[in-house]
Amino acid sequence: MAATTASAGAHRARNSHDLRTIATIWVVLSIVADLLFWFLAGPHIPPGRMSDQAEGAQFDFNVLFVVALPVVILVWTYLGFAIIRWRASRHDADEAPVGVPARTALRIQTSWIAITTVVVIGLFGFGTYELIAPAGAGGGEGPTAIWKPTTKTILPIQVIGQQWMWTYRYPSFGGFETSQLIVPDNTEIAFHVTSLDVIHDFWAYQLGVKADANPGTDNIAYVKPQQLGRFTVRCDELCGLWHGAMYNYGHVVSPTAFYHWATTTEKKLAANTKTLPPFAWTYTPDANGADGGYYLDNVNPYSKSSLYGANTVKVKQYGASAAQS
């Protein structure tokens, strides 16, 4: 009896010692890994910091990673420790480590449930806040955006997808349309994303913007660039033979340079703009090809230009003050 009690005591002592060792290794490794990640890798995590939204996405990713790293390290440490320290060949039968059955270990169960609940609910709260605070975090919010920026001056840019290229309309500058995407730095921008045929997906990678381009839908995504430079635009929805070629580059320029470019381009493209349908948030593509004749879904024949922009809305002029700041 005395021998059994002594043996149980020895087990408990060994278990406590092992747990302390695991905890120490875990804490040290977690702190080191988190610090290394945050300061060395964190600043280089895509999509970078070219816009408010991109920086937000990078921050979110880094926070999630810093939370996840200790969990991973705990599992690996425990596993490694078990393999090395608790290997059967290292112990005699009566010395084998004996733990408390998990089924009756109320403290362990409660702690486990409490910790995981706190982590999951915490991440849920964090993620929700990070989605709402930066006005949708660069994601498409549909035609009636729920989370809008508080800034008064918002530059609308319409993004039009068609098989297989992107074009852009600038309603604040006469509604000209171009295949160049030029945006001003330090200015709140509303991308109005739509399509003339199938579903595409507008992904301005370094800006941290991603919004589906659906025909007949105005999908709004907000962004505020904060660095000059070039960014990549890709289609991120498989859309046919040349989906892989459906990309181009946009540029963030100074507000002054943007204003100059926009006004110059407006004049340069005036003749073409006159032939475009009136500006509308969405357009009605013809389902039947170039000149109709085969109507699969009872859609009207090719829309005349007057019908083409039936949902024309008045767009507030982009403030010159923002352009000149």
């Binding site: 068609q162 098989q163 297989w164 290229m165 045929d197 199938v198 046919g240 033979l241 040349w242 070629a245 593509p285 013809d286 389902a287 039947n288 090809g289 170039a290 000149d291 004749g293 085969y294 699969l296």
Partner: peptide
């Protein structure tokens, strides 16, 4: 890659099937 941008694949939805693809 080069292509025609007139959806001239008549008989295909949105004119972008067949010869356009």
């Amino acid at each position: 890659h080069w292509q025609c941008f007139v959806p001239c694949g008549l008989g295909y939805l949105y004119g972008n099937g067949g010869p356009m693809q």
